[in-house]
Amino acid sequence: MRLLMETDSMLASRITEVLEKALSKPGTPVTITPESVGPNTDLWTKFELDSLDVVDFSMRLEEAFAIKIPEEDLDLFRTVHAIVEYVRGKTASYR
């Protein structure tokens, strides 16, 4: 229900929070600002994400948004905008 009431920018903010957690390492927290990552920034390129980083990120997204992400969808997760669309689509399919 919460997801349905969130604007795209609220969702994007939560997604970047998840990404921060995924990228942070002990002693080296990562902070992502709206200026540094726009809706269409290629996250894989910007943060040099490996496929395992993307799996890590996707599992954290699953937890944050209570969705199930099949492995074959992972290469869709390149931008915040694409993830917002994906999460919206997923929650719509649960209704």
């Binding site: 599992m59 954290r60 699953e62 937890e63 209570a66 969705i67 997923k90 649960y94």
Partner: peptide, 18 residues
Amino acid sequence: MYEEKPRLIAEKASHFSR
């Protein structure tokens, strides 16, 4: 394929952080 309810999925998917 996505017939499971979000709450149940969340429980299933919550292991990684734990």
